[in-house]
């Protein structure tokens, strides 16, 4: 490894094993909550007829979520890179090895942790929404929420159909035969 690092080994391992994973955990927590909020907003946007502004907002939210996922991935990589650099440092530098041997901290024998990256939330801006409906006893199943009608039939069209029905009904009924015609 060609990298050089001029930091005490304990600092390196502490950052790799705790500092950076903590940041990743913070982001993961936000990501998890954001996913659930986006799920709610996605359903409501579908019910609101999927206005373009709400689809834009969902796109923005999805990008934030994607940013969080990338952030966690990168932080995981950073922690591992730092850990490996530390290992290399201990293996090749006497002072670093001595410092490591004398280190009595709780993190000494801890493996570097990788924070779970929250699942991809896909494209909430796409028409409709899929959400989990809980039916009790811990059971739930995915349900598709259809978008509301943003562009309904105009009143004149409905009125035309209605008047046509009335006219047909009236023709069908007709008037009784006029008896005076026969006189």
């Amino acid at each position: 490894m060609s990298d050089e690092i001029y930091v005490p080994i304990v600092k390196i391992y502490t950052a790799a094993r705790q500092g950076i994973p903590d940041q990743a955990e913070d982001l993961a927590l936000i990501g998890g909550r954001l996913a659930s909020i986006v799920d709610t907003l996605d359903v409501q946007a579908a019910k609101a007829g999927e206005p373009a502004a709400l689809r834009d907002a969902l796109t923005i939210a999805a990008r934030v979520h994607d940013g969080i996922r990338r952030g966690i991935t990168t932080l995981n990589h950073a922690a591992v890179a730092l850990e490996l650099t530390g290992d290399d440092y201990v293996a090749t530098d006497t002072q670093a090895r001595d410092e490591f041997d004398q280190w009595g901290g709780a993190l000494k024998n801890v493996e570097v942790t990788r924070t779970a990256v929250p699942g991809d939330i896909g494209s909430p801006e796409a028409p409709g929404a899929v959400t989990d409906v809980t039916i009790g006893f811990g059971l739930h199943y995915p349900t598709y929420v259809t978008p509301s009608d943003y562009d309904p039939t105009s009143p004149s069209e409905d009125k035309g159909d209605r008047d046509e029905t009335a006219s047909d009904d009236s023709d069908d009924l007709g008037l009784p035969h006029d008896p005076t015609d026969d006189y």
Binding site: D3, Y6, K11, I12, A15, G19, I20
Partner: peptide, 26 residues
């Protein structure tokens, strides 16, 4: 409000590492 900045002020020395790590990874 849960997003936090000034992450380099952390007690884990990331700021120091950032400036003292050379090479590709650094």
């Amino acid at each position: 409000s849960d997003f936090s900045v000034n992450v380099l002020d952390d007690p884990f020395g990331i700021e120091t590492i950032r400036t003292q790590w050379t090479g590709k990874s650094g």
